[in-house]
Design a protein around this nucleic acid. Structure first.
Lengths: 147, 147, 147, 147
DNA sequence: TTTT
DNA sequence: TTTT
């Protein structure tokens, strides 16, 4: 239970790389991948168009990590929702800080992955390439999935 | 215009310190302050209660920065909404990274600041100490404020 | 699992009335209460200040409903998050429509209810009247509560 | 300025119909269209899969309405963000109520509209049918658009 | 490192 | 009325 505080991040962006999975055992795992968001605006002084991109470190766990591993790959567009988490560690005697987004909800908005038509949850690529069947997946629902 | 991406952060938390203002000139300024969010949960293995706190680097600009300077102080609870922004710089030859939240909407949920009753925007402390009249301030509306 | 869609409502507002509880049995119940949000702006033509208030029909279930019943009352300020749900029914032969917000997360931002200090979840009114210790409650966590 | 309240709706869904535009004059207009969100879950008693769909009345104004008219059509998937607004009117002596979502930010997540390649903002359908170039449009930015 |  |  949170102490009367709210910590919420909502992103729609593209995967900059495939997910990297790390298994602790066959039940517990964590997956990490970067998501890019970008915005472009016109600089008021110079009149030139500027595009800036921000990279976000996404962390998913267990069932949701397995779903991401199965359906997402580099370049795909996704909706994610989660919490900002600070992580610190020491590297070569220097304290390092990193900000991660611990995601608990993910919806695919596009997918490039060739999905096996025998798995009913899979987006059916053959029917309608421009609108692959996306699904929203949350941790509670992972248990229903065939992993 | 953003390239079909969304970058949104919503926080409710407490100021860990007073705002630090930096003025570029009398029109342009930036203010920074930390916000803490926390959550506590029961560790499933040990059964002990764990509380974890995350600190967020809030950045506000111009009119909204001046409103924050005027009405917020250490310990106050606020709602903020903004975007995640990565910042990098070099310090002693080492590349440093920091994640900031560039806030464009702020609502006071409590205030300790002794506010002058002659400024109508100020929360009226005398009437209802447990629920000071908060106001939502967004950048577009700054022009209406008496600065 | 949702079909690649997102339905999310976030409100901070005040209860217009106490919660109305309806029990199906001792496990299952539903609670309803109205929340007001308001905004005021200056009419560009007339220059006069206009305040408009919107009322939202909040619906909570089971453990979260019991928490709301216990800690919230008319006038309190809360943060809620949920989904928009359309409901239709017939009344006197006329089809009626209503929009509800089915809430799955609630955080108290103020409370007037006199809370018993023996219940540790209760905001501790004696310490800090202007900022009662609020708690975020989500359905998954209800099981930990003493109901 | 809002009175310390927050009223925020975030939807990703599909247009159930084309936008209906109403022009007050050549500067001021309003557009309306329905968006569907759906969720499916397994009924715990019966074990059968249930899908429920909610329809949302989207309202956009002026520049954003024109962008929606130009780029969106029935079936398209969009991200929208806005505020819940109650509307009431009398019809045949009976008071009617309706809930609308007054949208101030829209991002196209798919488009079926055949867009003219001479307009640079248009999604370029020929290159990559499965991922049309989406754009986020907010009211403040409308002035940059060629209307 | 993505995407447009 | 959409979408899967």
């Amino acid at each position: 239970m949170a102490a009367g505080t709210i910590n919420k991040v909502i992103l729609i962006g593209n995967l900059g790389d495939d997910i990297k999975m790390h298994y602790f055992d066959d039940q517990n795992c964590v997956g990490r991948f970067p998501i890019a968001t970008s915005e472009s605006y016109t600089n008021k002084q110079s009149g030139e168009k500027v595009t800036s991109t921000d990279w976000h470190n996404i962390v998913v766990r267990n069932g949701l990590a397995k779903v991401c591993e199965k359906y997402l790959s580099k370049g795909d567009k996704v909706y994610v929702e989660g919490k900002l988490k600070n992580r610190q560690w020491e590297q070569d005697g220097v304290k390092r800080y990193s900000t991660e987004i611990h995601v608990n909800e993910m919806t695919m908005l596009s997918t490039k992955k060739n999905t096996d038509s025998s798995t009913p949850i899979a987006p059916q690529q053959d029917q309608k390439p421009s609108a692959p069947a996306p699904k929203t997946v949350t941790p509670e629902e992972d248990d229903d999935l065939p992993f």
